[in-house]
Structures are given as structure tokens and as C-alpha cells.
């Protein structure tokens, strides 16, 4: 186990290097830069000085090395758009907002998805199963950018129950959480249902039934315990998606999270901010994957990593 962990951690660094190098090269290859979309075109002299000021006139490799050394000290340079802020500051301010939203949606997805999945599996082949399966499919196909505006129209503009946008109070949280989490709740429900049905084919489940355990106990104690494994595996990528991929929801509800920052940065070709955020996202994603693999070994005693 420890050896496996060390091996994975060793892979962490090269993986991060590849990702940063790729994103670094991509943003640099593109013509156009952070300075040339401003309203008044800059004189060549000013542009040259600006480039020199932010080391954009150096060879690519040197710029990349500069970025790497800075990144080691958590210094990703200044944002080229919002020049009074450093990239680190922007991430530090926006990431917690996205993290809260992501975690809430994560809880919502699990809290809604697991019971629905369990219910449909327990009622397999009856009408409740068919209707709920249809609901699950519709949930899986309802992206946040359809659900969010409809929720806003109905709940905030018609019924005036919840605020339509912004961030701060507890009532601001409800709509974005639902809009972000519903599609994942659908995926969890479906995954859990399939896995429950597959596990209940096992012989030890037959034994549990044969010795007279009530069905609810069989499902909860024996089937669900094993059937939760694929859900756990999926939790890693799901959490990563939720933490990093709430661009649209943040956009609709005007939430100052890192997703919104990233989209603006990509559109403005704000090199330093793009690369900084990609690095940040990559670290989250890789560590979550690692964490899930470790969790997997802890839950399922049959798995031993070498």
C-alpha cells in the first residue's frame, strides 16, 4: 500500500509538468495577446515595454522556467488583465466560493441520487421502477444551463421565493446547488441502481436471503455495501467536475467563483491567469483521483495494491 502510494506520488510531478507545459505552449502559440484587444490600439513602443515588463519577449522555454520557479513559491505572476491583482490572489479569493458551491452540489447529488437509485433497484420491474428510471434519464440529460434559468423564472421571478442571483446569504445557495447537482444526482442514481442489481446476482446474497433475512436488511447490509464501490470511484471525477466545472452556473447566478474567472481569462487571453488556473485545477483533479484509489482499497478488502 505504502509503496503504491509512493509510486503514485512520484507520477504526480511529471503529470503536472506535462499539463502545465501543454497549457503554457497552447496559450503562447495563439496569435493575439492580452494587450491587443483593448479599445485604443497600443503604439508599438508601449506594447514592447509592456511585453518586456511581463517578460513576454523572452524565449518560450525561459518563460516556462520562470513560471515553474514562481509556481514553486505559489507565485504565478500578475494577472495580465487585472494587473493590480496577482494570479495567486485571484485564485485565493475565487476558489473557496467555487469549492463551497461544488461541495454543496456534491452533497445534493449524493443525497438525492443514492435514495433514488436504491428505490428503483428495490422495486425492480414494477411501475415505480419504470417511472423512476425515466426520471433518472431526464435528470441526467438536464444540463444546468437549462435548469438554472427555469428555476430563476419560476422560483425567483414568479413566486419570489429565492433571490435570482448573487452570492453571500444562505438563500443564494439553494438554486445554484440544485442546478449544478441535478445532472450528477441522475448519474449517481443510475450507477447505483445498476451496481445494486449486479451485486444482488451474487451467491452470498442468495445465502443471505435463504437464511431468512428480511429483504430490506439484505439490500442495505449486504448488497449496498458492495454496490457502493462504483459510486465511490465515480465520486472522484464527479467532485473534480463539480469543483472545476461550474462555469455556467457561476455565470448565470453571477457568482464570483474561479469558473467565471477561467472563462474570462481564456477569452481575454490572460496567459498567466489561464495557466495558473489550469495548474490549480490539475492539482485538484490528480489528488482527488489518488484519494479515490486509496479509499477504494480501504472500503474493499479484496483490493490490494502492489
Amino acid at each position: 500500500m505504502i509503496r503504491y502510494l509512493v509510486k503514485r506520488l512520484c507520477l504526480f510531478v511529471p503529470l503536472l509538468l506535462v499539463i502545465t507545459l501543454l497549457s503554457f505552449c497552447l496559450v503562447k502559440i495563439a496569435p493575439g495577446g492580452p494587450f491587443d484587444s483593448e479599445r485604443a490600439p497600443l503604439t508599438p513602443e508601449v506594447e514592447r515595454q509592456l511585453k518586456a515588463r511581463y517578460y513576454l519577449d523572452e524565449p518560450l522555454l525561459k518563460q516556462y522556467m520562470r513560471f515553474l520557479f514562481g509556481a514553486l513559491q505559489l507565485d504565478f505572476g500578475p494577472s495580465l488583465r487585472y494587473r493590480s491583482h496577482s494570479v495567486y490572489e485571484i485564485i485565493r479569493e475565487s476558489a473557496p466560493v467555487s469549492a463551497i458551491l461544488g461541495l454543496l452540489a456534491f452533497g445534493f447529488a449524493l443525497g438525492l441520487g443514492l435514495p433514488i437509485g436504491f428505490y428503483t433497484a428495490a422495486r425492480r420491474g414494477r411501475w415505480q421502477d419504470y417511472t423512476s428510471s425515466l426520471i433518472i434519464i431526464v435528470m441526467m440529460c438536464t444540463p444546468g444551463f437549462i435548469l438554472a434559468p427555469i428555476l430563476v423564472l419560476v422560483l425567483s421571478l414568479k413566486l419570489k421565493l429565492l433571490p435570482p442571483a448573487l452570492w453571500g446569504n444562505i438563500e443564494h445557495v439553494v438554486l445554484p446547488t440544485i442546478a449544478l447537482g441535478l445532472i450528477y444526482a441522475g448519474r449517481i442514481a443510475r450507477l447505483f441502481r445498476g451496481s445494486l442489481l449486479e451485486v444482488s446476482q451474487n451467491e452470498f446474497i442468495l445465502l443471505a436471503r435463504a437464511k431468512g433475512l428480511p429483504e430490506s436488511k439484505v439490500l442495505l447490509r449486504h448488497v449496498a455495501r458492495l454496490a457502493i464501490l462504483p459510486v465511490v470511484t465515480y465520486c472522484g471525477p464527479m467532485l473534480a467536475d463539480l469543483l472545476t466545472g461550474s462555469f455556467v452556473i457561476e455565470n448565470i447566478f453571477q457568482i464570483p467563483g474561479s469558473g467565471m474567472m477561467f472563462v474570462h481569462a481564456a477569452l481575454n487571453s490572460d496567459y498567466t491567469l489561464v495557466v495558473g488556473l489550469v495548474t490549480f485545477y490539475a492539482i485538484i483533479l490528480i489528488s482527488l483521483n489518488l484519494f479515490v484509489d486509496v479509499c477504494y482499497a480501504v472500503i474493499d478488502p479484496r483490493i490490494r495494491y502492489e
Binding site: 499539463i19 497549457s23 473534480a240 472545476t244 462555469f247 472563462v263 481564456a266 489550469v278 485545477y281 483533479l285
Partner: peptide, 10 residues
Amino acid sequence: SMPGIIVVIV
């Protein structure tokens, strides 16, 4: 392990 949607945006 690359964040797919981010890669597409970039």
C-alpha cells in the same frame, strides 16, 4: 487526468 472541458476551452 487532464480536465477535459478546460482543455477544450483553452
